[in-house]
């Protein structure tokens, strides 16, 4: 599982006001099926369709990370971060290993769009992904501060791990 530590020099987090300015942070682009964790100011960018990204950050240490999973449930022979049931616990584990404190971890959830949102049927991949993320975070006792899920549009997401700011633009 790729783990991409931040490489930017130590500096104070720059608060954003709804702009994607990276504020000198290290830049990481997260491909589908990967997760990234950083202990230094880092801006993680990804693009989501029906996929879902869970962003975690620990306000006490400024450590955080993001995953980007495609399907909800993993299979026995493939336990990669392409699956939510692997990607969410793995992200929690990785941020804790990087030095975050469980008690101060908070989450944000993004993505889970559906092309046919207006005519949704019993099975909707985006909704399933988002519902799984919510359930796993609830089970892990991590509060979800914010979420922007569903709809019919893809999203570009930039997450600053050090202050938990998330910038989302519908595509």
């Amino acid at each position: 599982m790729p783990r991409l530590p931040g490489t930017a020099p130590e500096r104070a987090a720059t608060a954003l006001s709804g702009t994607p300015d990276s504020g000198g942070r290290a830049q990481v682009y997260l491909h589908a099926g990967q997760l990234a964790v950083a202990a230094r100011p880092t801006a993680i960018t990804t693009i989501l369709g029906s996929c879902v990204a869970v962003c975690l950050y620990d306000r006490s240490t400024g450590i955080g990370g993001m995953n980007h999973f495609l399907l909800p449930y993993h299979v026995e022979r493939d336990r990669s971060a392409r699956f939510g049931t692997v990607a969410v616990p793995a992200l929690v584990e990785e941020v804790l290993r990087a030095g975050a404190t469980r008690g101060t971890l908070v989450a944000k959830i993004f993505g889970g769009a559906s092309v046919i949102g207006a005519f949704k049927t019993s099975r909707n991949l985006g909704e399933e992904n988002a519902a799984l993320a919510r359930r796993l975070l609830e089970e892990a006792g991590i509060p979800v501060l914010d979420q922007d899920v569903g709809g019919t549009k893809g999203r570009k997401l930039i997450f600053h791990v050090d202050d938990g700011t998330a910038w989302v633009r519908q595509l």
Partner: peptide, 9 residues
């Protein structure tokens, strides 16, 4: 490719 983490079975 960048999004391919490694070889599989």
């Amino acid at each position: 490719l960048g999004h391919k983490p490694g070889l599989t079975e």
